[in-house]
Computed example of a mutant assay.
Amino acid sequence: MSFAEFGGPDVLQLVDAEEPHAGPGRIRIAVRAAGVNPVDWRVREGQVLGAHPVELPSGVGLDAAGVVDEVGEGVTGVEVGDRVFGEGADTYADFAVLGAWARMPEGLTFEEAAGYPSVVETALRVMREVGVRPGQTLLVSGASGGVGSAVLQIARERGVTVIGTAGAANQEYLRDLGAVATTYGEGWVERVRRHGEVHAALDLAGSGVIRELVELTGSPERVVSIADLGAPEFGVRFSGVAGSVPAALAEAVDLISRGKLHIPVEKSYSLAEAASAHIDSQAGHTRGRRVLVI
């Protein structure tokens, strides 16, 4: 899957391309599933060129799960035929090169595994950046998507109380993940206040609530956004640059293996349906993850 110009979902084109190969420190996989992340359509629109430089024409996708079929120079601990998931470049494809990977935990399907890499890395990063500690309360705006699902479960494991906002249809889902659930929309700030002091907040949906999150926490330094490019206007950090993906994958494997983290796949698409997946991702209201099945 490729795009030759920045724009809407219609710029995505299914094309024949040269197969990539694993350079030093990299592996190539036969892709079985690719995760669909909001950053994918932000890159397609040219929104985040500072963090994700693009040379046109460009492939699409960061996350994937599949079977190793080529191992680059200097790589140890993985062999052709291993089932892995990880992060790389241009993963909406039959073959993709990964720069960070881990063996898939037992019991995960390729579809499920493809939904974890960027999501868990982002969840761990923003929780670190916002500085929330055990015993404190974290407010998560837009809590039912992939990153929110991970944050809620990781926070519960770390002894952090979470208040999550989501649509009415996702309230039970948030409660199942250990959050205090409330709806967004008119009166949401007062509904949050009824649950007590908020020590930190994450904006995961970009729904124009930065001012209110600052008000609820008492300081812009206690708020981090991954979705509102205007957040810095309020003194709030916009987090868009990945930290250590290998460390995040190792933590994901540990949490999944111990039954402490599960992110459901809300919907699967074929590679040819990538534009539809982007349209749905941009519309929001996701419960868990969207993936492409290759």
Rank of each mutant, 00 (worst) to 15 (best):
M1E: 11
S2T: 14
F3D: 00
A4R: 13
G7T: 11
V15Y: 13
E18I: 13
H21I: 08
I27Q: 02
V31T: 06
V31S: 06
V31R: 03
A33F: 11
P38T: 08
D40H: 10
D40G: 06
W41H: 12
E45M: 14
G50F: 14
V54P: 06
E55G: 04
S58F: 13
V60F: 13
L62W: 14
G66T: 04
G66F: 07
V68T: 04
D69G: 08
D69R: 07
E70P: 08
E70R: 10
V71E: 07
G72W: 11
G72V: 11
G74R: 11
V75P: 04
E79H: 15
D82M: 11
R83P: 08
F85H: 09
D90T: 10
A93E: 06
D94Y: 14
D94K: 14
V97N: 03
A102K: 05
L108F: 12
L108C: 09
T109H: 11
F110L: 08
F110W: 09
Y116N: 01
V120W: 05
E121I: 10
T122G: 08
V126E: 07
M127D: 02
R128M: 14
V130K: 02
V132I: 12
P134C: 11
Q136K: 07
L138P: 01
L139G: 01
L139Y: 03
S141W: 09
A143T: 03
G148W: 01
S149D: 06
V151S: 00
L152N: 02
Q153L: 09
I154F: 05
R158Y: 06
V160M: 05
T161F: 03
T161L: 11
V162C: 10
A168G: 07
A168V: 15
E172H: 09
Y173R: 01
L177A: 06
L177E: 01
A179Q: 00
A179R: 00
V180C: 06
T183G: 05
G187P: 06
G187D: 09
V189F: 13
E190P: 06
V192Q: 02
H195E: 10
H195T: 00
E197G: 00
V198T: 05
H199V: 01
A200P: 07
A201D: 04
D203Y: 03
G208N: 10
V209A: 02
V209H: 08
L213Y: 05
V214G: 00
V214L: 06
L216C: 03
S219Y: 00
P220A: 10
R222F: 03
S225W: 02
D228F: 06
L229V: 14
L229C: 05
G230Y: 15
A231N: 04
R237A: 07
F238W: 11
S244Y: 12
S244R: 11
P246C: 12
A247K: 14
A248Y: 06
L249F: 11
L249D: 02
L249M: 10
A250C: 09
D254H: 15
L255A: 09
I256W: 03
R258E: 12
L261S: 00
K267N: 00
K267Q: 13
Y269M: 09
Y269K: 08
S270P: 05
L271M: 14
L271F: 15
E273S: 13
E273K: 12
H278L: 12
D280Y: 07
S281P: 07
G284D: 03
R289D: 00
R289G: 04
L292W: 10
L292V: 13
V293R: 14
